[in-house]
Design a protein around this nucleic acid. Structure first.
Lengths: 151, 151
DNA sequence: CTAATATAGTTGCATATGCAACTATATTAG
DNA sequence: CTAATATAGTTGCATATGCAACTATATTAG
C-alpha cells in the first residue's frame, strides 16, 4: 500500500463530524452548521453564495445549513432592496452566545488534533493542508459541467 | 480566526468523495466502497468487523459497503464453520479487475493532492496526519457509551 | 448444563452532502 | 424595449455515514 493520506483525512473528517455533533447538541446544531455560523459572525452581511465559495460547499448544502440557523433564531436574513435575489446574513443576539461556545468547541478540537505538534510544525502542516485542499478543489472544479474547463 | 486545519480536512474529504464517485462510476461503486474493496483484496479472508476497525468505521456503515460489493459480485463471503456469526471476505475474479482500476484511481488522487510536495515532505505530512487521525479517533472513542472510559 | 454476557452483523432512522432541475430576479445583447 | 443569459436560492433525490435496537451465535460464570 502506498500513502494513506486519503485514509487519514477521512478518519479526521468523520471523527470531527461526531465530535461537533456531540459538543453542539446542547445548541441544537450539528457539525453541518458550525462552519456557516462562524463565517456569518466573521463577515456580517455575507450572502449564502459567498459562504459556499469560501468553504467550497455546494449551494444547496449551504442553503439548508443557513435555513436551520435561521429557524433556530441564531441568524437573520436582511433583504437587500437593490437585489431581491439574495439576502445578507447576520448573527442574532441569541446566536452570539452560540458563536462563543462554538469557537471554544472548535478550538478544543484543534488542540486535540494538534496535541503533540510544535507550533512551527503546526503552521507548516496547515500550509500543506491548504495546498492539498486547493489541489483537490481545483481538480474537481475544473472538470465541472461543460467538460472543457471554464471558470 | 485561528487555524484552519479542520476546514482544510473537510474540503479534502468532500472533494475526494466527489472524485471517487466520479471515477468509480463505471464500476457502479462510489467513494463509500473503495476503501473496503481494497482492504478485502489486501487481506483475503478478513471479516467485516476487522475492516471496520482498520478504518475506524461504524460497523453498520461497513456492513452496507460490503453488501453492495457482494451484490455487484466483486466480493464473496465464505461462511466459517467454527463461528457462524462471521464470514470471511474475498475479492472475486470479477472484482480483481475493479481492484486494479481502483488502485489506479486512488494513486491518481494521491498525486493530485501531493502535487507539489517533495517526497520527504510528503512522508512527514503523512506521519503527522496519522498522528492527528489517531488523536481524533482516540478522543472520540474514549467517550463512547459508558461515559467512564472503557476499552 | 443454564443463565448471563459478549460478539458479528443487520436494519431503521437521522444528518450532511452533492447534483440537477427549478423559480425568481437581474443583466446583457440586439 | 425584448429575448437570451446569468445569478441567488430552493428543493427532490441519491449516497455515505453514525447510532441504537435488534437477531443469531458463541463464550463465560455459577
Amino acid at each position: 500500500m502506498q500513502t494513506s493520506i486519503n485514509k487519514q483525512a477521512s478518519i479526521i473528517y468523520r471523527n470531527s463530524h461526531i465530535y461537533f455533533d456531540r459538543e453542539l447538541a446542547p445548541y441544537h446544531i450539528g457539525s453541518g452548521q458550525q462552519f456557516f455560523l462562524l463565517r456569518i459572525y466573521e463577515f456580517p452581511g455575507i450572502t449564502a453564495l459567498e459562504i459556499a465559495k469560501i468553504g467550497h460547499y455546494d449551494k444547496g448544502t449551504c442553503a439548508r445549513a443557513i435555513s436551520k440557523l435561521c429557524e433556530l433564531g441564531y441568524v437573520e436574513r436582511k433583504l437587500v432592496e437593490e437585489d431581491k435575489r439574495s439576502s445578507q446574513l447576520y448573527v442574532s443576539t441569541k446566536g452570539k452566545e452560540v458563536v462563543r461556545q462554538t469557537k471554544i468547541v472548535l478550538k478544543k478540537w484543534n488542540d486535540i488534533l494538534c496535541n503533540d505538534l510544535e507550533v512551527e510544525e503546526q503552521r507548516q502542516l496547515e500550509k500543506q493542508l491548504e495546498k492539498m485542499a486547493d489541489h483537490a478543489f481545483s481538480y474537481i472544479n475544473e472538470r465541472k459541467k461543460g467538460s472543457i474547463c471554464k471558470k
